[in-house]
């Protein structure tokens, strides 16, 4: 009696972890994409945590001590004073407008990507092609915007910033225009370094995402997934693309807003 009871109700179903089935109810490829994304999360968190650590180790801008806001290498700058330029609107102060547009472009390209995935479930090849093209366009527009922003950040404002520094025991004053890895008109050099590393690493991800999207579009257009009988590849690349959008959401908050 006891023997029949145990065979009818196994305590632990070993079979589901011994191959041949999908214990997490997703295909091998999708599961591995998830695990890749979690490892990529660690890389991006490491960069953002570094940003937080270095930012908190510098003095914050305080109107009572530093007076009206101006760029200085003595304290961490306020992001909305740094990122206030918009293409074709030279000389106007439009804080965070351009980066807001970039955020919307990326969120929207994420929407067209999920629409492509949905079309793939219905085996609607024309719709997958259409939405993949929109997604590629969004990705390229974002990359172009980022190139413009980098170029503006590197060249700096018209008047630059006068910084004081101790060279061979003497205080000297000089004007710095823009930013690179060693000097920065907007604040401490570490601020520019982190800007280049974090947005650059994210931009590299967007770039590889666009390359993958082009590949998926090409293979869809030539009917590979129709012949294969499913559009799972669109889902896998979609996961990556949404992840890139997600990272931007965090970069936007921690780099531009906070």
């Amino acid at each position: 009696m006891a023997a029949t009871a145990t065979t009818e109700a196994p305590v632990f179903d070993k079979k589901s972890w011994m191959g041949g089935v999908e214990p997490m109810k997703v295909s091998y490829g999708k599961l591995m994409m998830w695990f890749f994304l979690i490892s990529d999360t660690f890389t991006f968190s490491a960069l953002l945590v570094t940003y937080g650590l270095i930012r908190f180790s510098y003095p914050a801008y305080d109107p009572a001590i530093h007076g009206a806001f101006h760029f200085s290498n003595l304290y961490w700058p306020i992001p909305e004073k740094v990122y206030e330029a918009v293409p074709f609107l030279h000389g106007m102060e439009l804080p965070l407008v351009f980066v807001g547009i970039m955020t919307f472009i990326l969120i929207f390209s994420s929407v067209t990507m999920v629409l492509a995935v949905e079309a793939g479930h219905r085996m609607d090849r024309r719709a997958v092609e259409k939405y993949m093209l929109w997604t590629i366009l969004g990705g390229l527009t974002f990359l172009g915007s980022q190139a413009w922003e980098w170029s503006h950040f590197i060249h700096g404002t018209e008047n630059g910033t006068v910084i004081k520094e101790l060279v061979n025991g003497q205080w000297i004053e000089r004007t710095v225009f823009g930013a690179n890895l060693v000097e920065n008109q907007y604040g401490p050099p570490a601020f520019a370094d982190l800007f280049f590393f974090i947005t650059g690493f994210h931009g590299t991800h967007v770039f590889s995402g666009v390359v993958l999207n082009v590949l998926i579009f090409y293979r869809t257009a030539f009917g590979l997934y129709d012949r294969r009988g499913h559009y799972e590849m669109v889902e896998k690349v979609g996961l990556y693309w949404h992840f890139v959008d997600l990272v931007w959401v965090f970069v936007f908050t921690f780099f531009y807003l906070v």
Binding site: S110, H242, L246, V249, F250
Partner: peptide
């Protein structure tokens, strides 16, 4: 935002 992107889109 992360909840909606990961939960719904992903």
């Amino acid at each position: 935002k992360a909840f909606y992107i990961v939960g719904e889109f992903m």
